[in-house]
Amino acid sequence: MRIFLLSLASLMFLGCAKDSGTSTGNPLVALKFDSFTSTLALKTGDVGTEAVSSLKLCFKRLRFKLANTTAEDEVDFYLGDVTISNLGTDLGSINLPIGTYDRVEFDLDEDCPSTKSIQLVNSSGSFSTTDRISIRFDGTFTHTGSSDVLGMSIQQIVDSLNTVTNSSQLKAKAEGASGSF
């Protein structure tokens, strides 16, 4: 009886140990905002003055849109308040199914310690909002199953935020421009 139970336990162990997945797990895609410039050109066009000197975003959700389809992959993406640097900003990594994507959208929300979805300081002053805001990036990104880095240009959005002169404009300015990758 002892041999039978030992044999049965061995068979159960071997059956459960069978690996039908990948040995490396799901590869991650590292997300980052590329560097940007933050100046407004003066009328001469030769010299610029600093416009956006501080930008902080509160990330709530992330959506990847598959190319040539209406399907999307939605991921809760809570990072808290993130200061966006003109030198580039690493945003973290996510698991993403293999595929070709043509849009990435971030939902910004006030659910952060600051209670603000966007905090901005530009040459016109300091502004913030609690509005839910979606910022969008368009391009083509093919995730092949290897660990990839997706760099996104936030320049167009920053250029739009350069022109904010009161807090009520933040949502329209942020959503009215799109970044690229």
Rank of each mutant, 00 (worst) to 15 (best):
Ala71Ser: 13
Val121Asp: 14
Phe4His: 13
Tyr78Arg: 15
Arg132Met: 13
Leu55Asp: 14
Arg136Val: 07
Thr100Leu: 07
Thr37Ile: 08
Cys112Trp: 07
Thr83Leu: 03
Ile118Trp: 02
Lys32Val: 08
Asp107Tyr: 03
Leu79Pro: 09
Glu175Gly: 01
Asp73Ile: 12
Asn26Glu: 15
Thr24Ile: 13
Gly80Asp: 10
Leu161Lys: 00
Glu110Asn: 13
Gly92His: 01
Ser153Pro: 10
Gly176His: 02
Asp148His: 00
Ala172Met: 06
Ile154Asn: 04
Asp76Lys: 10
Asp73Trp: 12
Gly179Arg: 06
Ser35Asp: 14
Asn86Asp: 15
Ser23Thr: 11
Ser53His: 03
Leu55Asn: 10
Gln155Leu: 02
Ala71Met: 10
Thr83Pro: 09
Glu105Ser: 04
Leu108Glu: 14
Leu161Ser: 02
Val104Ser: 00
His143Ser: 04
Phe77His: 12
Asp34His: 04
Ala51Trp: 00
Ser180Lys: 07
Asn122Val: 02
Asp102Cys: 07
Met12His: 09
Ala71Glu: 15
Asn162Cys: 13
Ser20Trp: 10
Ser146His: 04
Leu8Trp: 11
Ile133Ala: 00
Asp102Trp: 00
Thr37Leu: 09
Pro97Phe: 06
Thr115His: 06
Ser123Val: 13
Ser146Gln: 13
Thr165Trp: 03
Arg136Gln: 14
Ala17Ser: 11
Val29Arg: 02
Asn26Lys: 08
Cys58Ser: 05
Ser147Phe: 02
Thr39Pro: 14
Leu108Pro: 11
Val47Asn: 12
Ala9Glu: 12
Ser147His: 00
Lys32Leu: 09
Asp81Phe: 04
Ser168Pro: 15
Val29Leu: 04
Ser23Met: 14
Asp73Asn: 12
Lys18Val: 11
Leu57Asp: 14
Leu57Pro: 10
Thr89Ser: 02
Leu120Phe: 02
Pro113His: 07
Thr44Ala: 03
Thr89Arg: 03
Lys171Gln: 14
Gly15Ser: 13
Ile157Val: 06
Val52Thr: 00
Ser23Trp: 09
